[in-house]
Design a protein around this nucleic acid. Structure first.
Lengths: 129, 129
DNA sequence: TTCCATGCAAACGGTTTGCAATTCT
DNA sequence: AGAATTGCAAACCGTTTGCATGGAA
C-alpha cells in the first residue's frame, strides 16, 4: 500500500530517522518526533515507519530478539552487529561476491532473491567485558 | 551457565528437536514433548532450549518477527529462508568464501567473529501467490 | 466530501520471570 | 541437606489493531 498522504507526522518520522546518526528503533524515533509533533502517538510512529519502509524511503533493519531499527541510508551496504550491545554499523564493501548461484539448485523450485550477509562480533567498547 | 543436570525434560526437548525434520519453534517442541513428559510446562521448554543452545547442543535460529526456531544439525551450514511462509532450509555449501577480512578494518577495534549468510526468497509452494 | 491517517487504549504473541515445590542423568 | 530445575501463572515488551475522530487531497 503506497503512501497517499505525506502528512506532518510522516515527514517528521522520516526526518527523525535521517537526522539520527544511529539506526533508531520506534521508541527512539517516538522520543525525537515528540519535540516536533508533541501529541503524536507511538502507534502512528510504528505505522509511519512501516509505510515509509514499504515505500522504499527507509530500510528496515530487523535484529532478532531486539527492536526493529530503521536506516535512512539506502545504498547497498552490509551490517556489522555487536552481539553484546546490539549496535549496528553500516559497512560499505567495494566487492561483495554474489553467492546466490551457489544455492540456486539446492532446494528445488526455490527462487533465491536476496543474500544477506551479516558480520557479528564485539565492538571495541564491549570487548572490555 | 552450563547444564548441570541432564533431566528427563531436557533430554526430551533435545530429542524432539532432533527427531523433527523441520526446525521447530518452542511451541512445536512443546506439542511434541508433551507426549513424552505430559505435564512439562512451556516455560521449561523455553528454558531447556535456551540451555541446550548455550551448551552447543542446539543451534538457535532467530528469524526477526517470527518465533525462534531450533536446529539440531550442528554442521556448518547456511540457511535458505522463505520470506512468505518462514520455512527454513539447511544449505550445505562446499565453498563459502571467508568475507571477514573485507570488514575487519572498517570499524576500528571491532572484533569480527562470525559471518552469517542467509539467502532469502520464496519456496516453490509460496510462489503460487 | 471523501476516505486516508491519527490518537488512544486495549489486545496480541512470543518470551521471560518470580516463587514455592520438586528432584537429583 | 543443598542446589539446580520444574510447573504455574503473571508479567514483560515490542508491536499491532479496533474504533471513533480529524484532516489532507
Amino acid at each position: 500500500m503506497p503512501i497517499v498522504r505525506f502528512t506532518r507526522q510522516r515527514q517528521a518520522v522520516l526526518e527523525a530517522v535521517k537526522n539520527s546518526r544511529e539506526h533508531p528503533d520506534a521508541a527512539r524515533v517516538f522520543e525525537a518526533v515528540r519535540h516536533v509533533v508533541p501529541n503524536i502517538s507511538l502507534g502512528t510512529v510504528y505505522r509511519s515507519l512501516e509505510a515509509l519502509a514499504d515505500d522504499g524511503h527507509l530500510l528496515k533493519l530487523q535484529q532478532p530478539g531486539r527492536p526493529t531499527r530503521y536506516d535512512a541510508n539506502l545504498d547497498g551496504h552490509h551490517h556489522l552487529v555487536c552481539d553484546s550491545c546490539g549496535e549496528v554499523y553500516d559497512v560499505t564493501l567495494a566487492e561483495m561476491p554474489d553467492l546466490r548461484g551457489l544455492v540456486q539448485h539446492v532446494v528445488p523450485g526455490f527462487e533465491v532473491r536476496e543474500q544477506r550477509v551479516e558480520f557479528h562480533g564485539f565492538c571495541s567498547r564491549c570487548q572490555k567485558n
